[in-house]
Design a protein around this nucleic acid. Structure first.
Lengths: 210, 210
DNA sequence: GTCTATAAGGCGATAGAC
DNA sequence: GTCTATCGCCTTATAGAC
């Protein structure tokens, strides 16, 4: 049970601030250690508060995890939703790749949290995957099918094209350690996302051009 | 410390068998629950033996995990090693994609074990990534560079091409739950790997054709 | 709202009989 | 080699003072 609505605006604001601090810290730890690998102590330390104090805001460890996953899913669907039926097909796909790569660069922790959840069988978000996500993919797959019929794209399996874009872009967040182990220092530090964007755009433009 | 060499062949064989049973069970549990999410009890139950009995073969939980990662890395490098400098470039790349997809289909647990390890910062295999894996990628990148210079492949960043093949193929093992949540029943059950192979071959052949 | 203290249970690992 | 019993730590979560 959350704390009751406070009597003044001031208290409510403090509550919100603390919840944000906690979720920010929880994201940091969950995304690198996984759910079971994370202890409440670690999150509390990162949030600069005591463990019982943290548990005043989120009564159970799982509540923090679920809150993070819930707010994640909305943002996660956004880039695909923006794919525009009125746009030029190859350009829309390139823009989608760019948006996904930007998210991998800016929100790697969210990507890893999601990856951890899926890897372990998606116990907390399976319904959303089979519901909202599936519907969105169905919708955009039909859009891609239309583009193919209009000869604006080479024939391909739309769903698997979407999967491949997810895979290649999220890879730069989820497998960052491996990528950095392989690239030379200069590339690793400055240009890996830009290099990835160029390669992927070339691959998909040539690969899907009618 | 492992049990000392036994006095008879028979005992040694039993040891090996038990070690294999344990590692097989450990792979099953580690790959779905992660290291911290796995308990020795679970592995022992899956292996059909008591916890202390299991700990007679592997003194610590981490020993099982490390053994699995070590034996995994060898198999992991094999598909890329087989990329043949004497072959036809586009065909070699298609064959590499096929081999990787086959591994995702046949050994999804190994893929997920690896993904879990990388996601959490690769604490147990960082040296191998920066050593053997990096050298192999360097070698094959030079091969791809040569193919590009000979106008047998379109210009592209070889390392990122390799990354994209890893990402797209391993995705079918690591994110299987998500893929199955989205695909229709028929596709999900029978043809998803075949559909993926066709789409990816088309994408890379057209995308990298000079 | 925040703290100290602690209950309650899970889990890795060991002891020691057989 | 395998078992039963158990130690001792770590971790979640709660009680209750301030």
């Amino acid at each position: 049970m959350k704390p009751r609505a406070a009597s003044t605006q001031r208290r409510t604001r403090i509550q919100k601030e603390n919840e944000e601090i906690i979720l920010e810290s929880a994201l940091e730890i969950f995304s690198t250690n996984g759910f079971r690998g994370t202890t409440i102590d670690q999150i509390a330390a990162a949030a600069g508060m005591s463990k019982p104090n943290l548990l005043y805001y989120f009564r159970r460890k799982e509540d923090m995890h679920q809150a993070l996953l819930d707010q994640l899913l909305t943002n996660w669907l956004a880039p695909l939703e923006e794919m525009d039926p009125g746009g030029e097909p190859l350009e829309e796909i390139c823009k989608y790749i760019r948006r996904k790569l930007e998210m991998a660069e800016k929100y790697p922790r969210e990507s890893r949290l999601f990856a951890n959840e899926i890897l372990q069988g998606a116990p907390h978000i399976k319904e959303q995957l089979e519901g909202a996500l599936r519907e969105l993919v169905d919708e955009k797959s039909m859009l891609i099918e239309n583009w193919i019929e209009q000869k604006k794209l080479a024939p391909c399996d739309p769903r698997h094209v979407i999967f491949s874009i997810w895979a290649t872009t999220q890879h730069y967040a989820d497998f960052d350690v491996q990528i950095c182990a392989i690239l030379a220092e200069e590339e690793r530090i400055k240009t890996r996302f830009e290099d990835a964007a160029k390669m992927l755009e070339g691959l998909y433009v040539n690969g899907l051009k009618p």
